[in-house]
């Protein structure tokens, strides 16, 4: 655990040392704010005290931004050779992966916390169901964790950050959109429930409606476990 903490410290230091992360935060905050308060169907217009429309925007924004956040993680380390430096230090491969995973997750958490003032404002304006909103935030964090693990896998697979970006986009869009669309194609039966189960949107929906189901938690945990193990496999493969 100590090593992971050291690695997280280093990763966060590197992220917050560059301008791009602050630009990312400002863009994220502004776009969410614009959609929540200023756009055509803003929170005043719908006449209900609910964060659901804002969550939908956050969901898509973080989907895009996590690609940019994770693309460098391993692709750049491989290209610069620093992966060799790390793996000849007393650091295990899974510690390296977890360090990157948790640092990205913390960055996503900070981004989500930036939208907390919207929630507070809305709570003053109307009668808000706090449980639902908090579960919605939890759902967004789970989705972020899922996409980060996919992003780290894409980065471990690719030689350059740009390739990693597109690989991540390709895999993540399946979970974000395509599996849901496929499920709609099959009205019912096994295929319908299978694709519905795979679709991340479906699991997020039930959380944002305020239903805490162990199956959803299990789903997000399995996504993280599967993609992080695949990343470990990719890194191991390069060393053989």
């Amino acid at each position: 655990m100590g090593t992971i903490k050291i690695l997280i410290g280093k990763e966060l230091g590197n992220y917050f040392n560059s301008w791009s992360i602050y630009i990312g935060y400002v863009v994220f905050f502004c776009v969410c704010g614009f959609y929540a308060w200023l756009s055509a169907n803003n929170l005043f217009y719908i006449g209900q005290a609910t964060m659901k429309p804002v969550f939908a925007v956050i969901n898509w924004l973080q989907f895009l931004m996590i690609s940019a956040l994770t693309m460098r993680s391993f692709a750049e380390e491989k290209r610069n050779g620093t992966l060799e430096l790390m793996l000849t230090k007393p650091v295990k491969t899974w510690e390296l992966i977890d360090g990157k995973f948790f640092s990205c997750l913390l960055i996503s958490l900070i981004a989500l916390l930036l939208t907390f003032p919207y929630y507070v404002t809305l709570a003053f304006l109307g009668n808000l169901d706090h449980g639902t909103v908090l579960l919605g935030y939890f759902g967004l964090l789970c989705m972020a964790a899922g996409y980060i693990s996919i992003g780290i896998f894409a980065s471990a697979l690719s030689r350059t950050p740009v390739t990693a970006f597109f690989v991540h986009f390709g895999i993540a869009i399946c979970f974000q959109l395509l599996f849901g669309m496929l499920a709609e194609q099959f009205n019912q039966g096994f295929m319908n429930s299978f694709f519905n189960y795979l679709s991340m949107e479906e699991h997020f929906d039930s959380l944002s409606r305020g239903i805490l189901d162990s199956r959803d938690i299990l789903y997000f945990c399995s996504i993280c476990a599967i993609f992080l193990s695949l990343s470990r496999f990719c890194i191991y493969k390069n060393r053989y």
Partner: peptide, 11 residues
């Protein structure tokens, strides 16, 4: 110390 001496450039 490896041949190409990889280091974290931004630190």
């Amino acid at each position: 110390l490896s041949e190409h001496n990889p280091l974290y450039e931004e630190m």
